[in-house]
Write a protein that binds this DNA or RNA. Structure first.
Lengths: 242, 242
DNA sequence: CAGTGGTCTAGACCACCTG
DNA sequence: AGGTGGTCTAGACCACTGA
C-alpha cells in the first residue's frame, strides 16, 4: 500500500484509531479487538505493520494480547503511580537552590554503615539545605561508602537529585532506587535550619540506591518542611505517548 | 537461520546479550552499540528481528535510539519511581481490614464539591477506617459526585484501593490518578479513631481520579498513622522483564 | 555522499487455544 | 482441524545524520 502522503506512519494511525474506540466506549474493558488478519484487510497493510501498531497499544497498557486467543481491551492500571523526582521537587515557578552544610567522614559501627554493608570501614556523609527561593524547604543527608581514590569533588555537590549524584560518585552502576516515605517530628537542629516551629511534623523521604548485585551504593534522607514541599505522583506516564 | 532447537526467541537472546554487556560494564553509559546491520551479520538474522530485540532494550530504558546516528546506552532512570498501591499498602504479613464508618450525602457549596465540578449538586462521601490486624492504621474519606440510578452498593464498599472503587461506581472510564503526598497533624476526631496521641503528625495521601476528558470522578483522602503506615516506591518496575 | 535508523511488504513456519 | 498470535525472512524505499 502506498500511503506516503501523510507523514504519520500507518501503524501509528491504526493504534490511534483503536485507542479512540476504547476511549469513546465503542470498545469496553474485556472486549476482543479485531484479529491481526482482519486488521490487515481493514487497513490494507501487512501483518508486521499491524503488529507494530498493536505493540504500541500493549506498551501503553490499553490492550493485552494472549497467544491463540486474541487481543483484549484492558482497564487502565490506576494503582501504579509514578513519582518523577525531577518535576516533583521543582513544583512552582522558583528553582531549587542548594547550600552545602558539611561533609564528614564517619568511622565505626552505626546504622547507616551497617545498612551500607561497610560496618568496618568508613562512610562519607554530606549534609545540604535545599531552598526554594529564599525559604528553606528540606534538609538532605547523604551517606556513601568511602572509596579510595574517589574523592567527592566540588562539582559533584551540585546535582539536584540523589540518583544522579550516586551515578557520578560510584564505580558500580546504580540500577535500582528504593524509596520509603514516612513522617516524623523535626528535631531541634532541624526546625532551626528549616526556620520552622518546634515540634513541627515533617515529610521524610528515604532513598537507597542499589547496584545490580543488590549492594547498597548510597542512602539519602530528606526531611521536608510540610508546608513547603509536597510529593506528587500520577498514573498517566505509564501510558506513554500515544 | 534455523535455530529452532532453543525455545527462547533469537531477538530475546540478542537483547539479553547486550543487556549483559551493559551490566558487566563492557558497554558504558553513552556508548554506541553495533549498528542494526552489524548485528544482523553477527547473529546471522534478519533486520526486523534485530529491531525487535533492540525495541526490548529501548522499552526497558537500557538504550536510546536516534535516527541517522545509532543506538546509545543510557543510564538507568532512577529518578522515576513507581508506587504500587496494591503492594505498598499490604506490607507486612497481616492483611488489611476495612470498617465502614458512614456514608453521607452532602449538598451545597464546599471545597470538594467545587473540586469535583458539581458545586450545584450533591456529593456522596464515604468514611472508612483501615485496620492492619487489630490496629487502626488509616482513615479514608472518599468524595464522589452523586449519580442518579447509581446507588452505592454494599459490595462496592469492600474494595481495597480507591481506583478500583471509582471504576466500579462511575459510568465514565477513569484514565488518570493524580496523587499528592503531604503531612498534617491529626485532628481530635482523627487521633481518637486511630488510637493515637493528640497532636501526632500523620501522612496524608490525596488521590484524584480523572476521566479521559479531565473531569474529576472522585477524590480520596487517606490520613495514616505515622508509625503503622508507610508508602514505598521503587524504580525497578520500569525496567520491565528482561 | 554514504551510513544510519524508520517504515513496510508478502510471504513462511510454529505453538497455542478452541471446538 | 481451523483460527489465533509469536517468530522470522529477505528484500524495499524513505528521512535523517554526518563528513
Amino acid at each position: 500500500m502506498k500511503n506516503r502522503q501523510s507523514m504519520i506512519p500507518v501503524y501509528y494511525r491504526l493504534a490511534e484509531d483503536i485507542k479512540q474506540q476504547i476511549e469513546s466506549g465503542e470498545l469496553k474493558h474485556g472486549d476482543l479487538i479485531p484479529t491481526e488478519g482482519q486488521l490487515c484487510e481493514m487497513y490494507g497493510i501487512s501483518r508486521m505493520t499491524v503488529r507494530q501498531g498493536l505493540s504500541l497499544l500493549a506498551e501503553a497498557g490499553l490492550i493485552e494480547t494472549i497467544k491463540g486467543k486474541g487481543s483484549f481491551v484492558t482497564c487502565p492500571k490506576l494503582n501504579q503511580l509514578v513519582i518523577d523526582l525531577k518535576t516533583s521537587q521543582a513544583t512552582g515557578g522558583e528553582p531549587l537552590r542548594y547550600q552545602l552544610l558539611g561533609v564528614k567522614l564517619i568511622r565505626g559501627d552505626h546504622d547507616f554503615a551497617r545498612e551500607l554493608g561497610c560496618a568496618e570501614s568508613k562512610v562519607i556523609t554530606v549534609k545540604r539545605l535545599i531552598y526554594k527561593g529564599d525559604q528553606p524547604v528540606a534538609i538532605e543527608d547523604k551517606y556513601l561508602p568511602y572509596l579510595k581514590g574517589k574523592p567527592l569533588l566540588e562539582n559533584q555537590m551540585d546535582y539536584a537529585d540523589f540518583p544522579e549524584f550516586v551515578a557520578k560518585h560510584q564505580e558500580s552502576v546504580p540500577v535500582r532506587n528504593d524509596m520509603v516515605i514516612s513522617v516524623d517530628t523535626l528535631s531541634e537542629e532541624q526546625y532551626k535550619l528549616l526556620e520552622a516551629e518546634q515540634g513541627m511534623p515533617a515529610l521524610v523521604i528515604k532513598q537507597v540506591i542499589y547496584s545490580r548485585d543488590d549492594k547498597p551504593l548510597g542512602i539519602s534522607i530528606m526531611v521536608c518542611h510540610k508546608d513547603r514541599f509536597q510529593l506528587t505522583a500520577t498514573s498517566y506516564p505509564l501510558s506513554g505517548r500515544l
